[in-house]
């Protein structure tokens, strides 16, 4: 039985007056890629933001490596080893690529330097533009930078929200290769609308609809379940 690193149990989250999450539950196995699927507005991003502590659930439990993190502030959750790559990258545009990475690097030691080298090997562009302003990068490079920032901190869990959004197919291929390589070192919770990317990377899947988890299982099973795909994903 593999270790469950993240457990989300029946979480409810409000944004203002709107009851967005109405019971989301999921388990992420250590060293696997768990993919969240669902239509726009189903609550995938809200789930991610709730896990990292930017939104506070009104009920339910969130445990990371066995520890209850539901009431912790975002910066403490991050220090436990959860990295977040938000939708739209969230890079600091006026800072350089190097500065962006330094903000994320909580400790500069041999391990983080090794990870940085690994990142630069995967994304040579980042090293090439290391001292350029992050705002001047292309969309794909920004995405790489955002992933790099989450990765350098030897986080045990990476939450990555729609990494392929708005990118050209050739760059998506590059990203998939890189994420596959990273999978060895961290557990990934991935939100992905591009089903090809999702099925290429995913080990497990959860389907979210109207703020609830409605299905779960191994990714392979979903690939062949056309009825389920048609019903919830429209494909």
């Amino acid at each position: 039985m593999p270790e469950i690193i993240l457990e989300v149990e029946d979480v409810h989250t409000y944004i203002g007056q709107h009851h967005i999450l109405q019971g989301v539950s999921l388990h992420a196995r250590a060293d696997a890629v768990t993919v969240l699927l669902g239509r726009n507005g189903a609550g995938k991003t809200t789930t991610m933001r709730t896990i990292v502590g930017l939104l506070h659930p009104t009920q339910g439990a969130i445990r990371f490596a066995g520890r209850d993190i539901r009431r912790l502030p975002p910066y403490e959750i991050a220090r436990l080893g959860i990295g977040y790559v938000p939708e739209g990258q969230g890079i600091f545009a006026t800072l350089t690529v190097d500065e962006n990475i330094r903000v994320a690097m909580l400790e500069e030691d041999a391990e983080s330097r090794k990870r940085l080298e690994q990142i630069f090997a995967l994304f040579p562009d980042l090293e090439r533009f290391r001292h350029a302003r992050a705002g001047s990068l292309s969309g794909g490079q920004k995405q790489m930078l955002s992933i790099a920032r989450a990765f350098v901190n030897r986080n045990r869990l990476l939450l990555i929200d729609e990494p392929s959004k708005g990118l050209a197919p050739i760059i998506i291929d590059h990203l998939v290769t890189a994420l596959r390589a990273m999978k060895q070192q961290a557990t990934v919770l991935l939100v992905e609308q591009n089903f090809q990317v999702a099925s290429a990377l995913g080990d497990d899947f959860y389907l979210i609809d109207d703020g609830r988890t409605v299905h779960r299982g191994p990714m392979e099973a979903l690939v062949h379940d056309h009825a389920l795909k048609k019903r919830y994903l429209g494909i």
Binding site: L54, P73, P74, A78, G90, F92, L95, V103
Partner: peptide, 14 residues
């Protein structure tokens, strides 16, 4: 400087 641009991101970086 990072916080001026995006305080939320600074927080989720610990």
């Amino acid at each position: 400087r990072a916080g001026v641009e995006n305080g939320e991101m600074v927080q989720v970086m610990g």
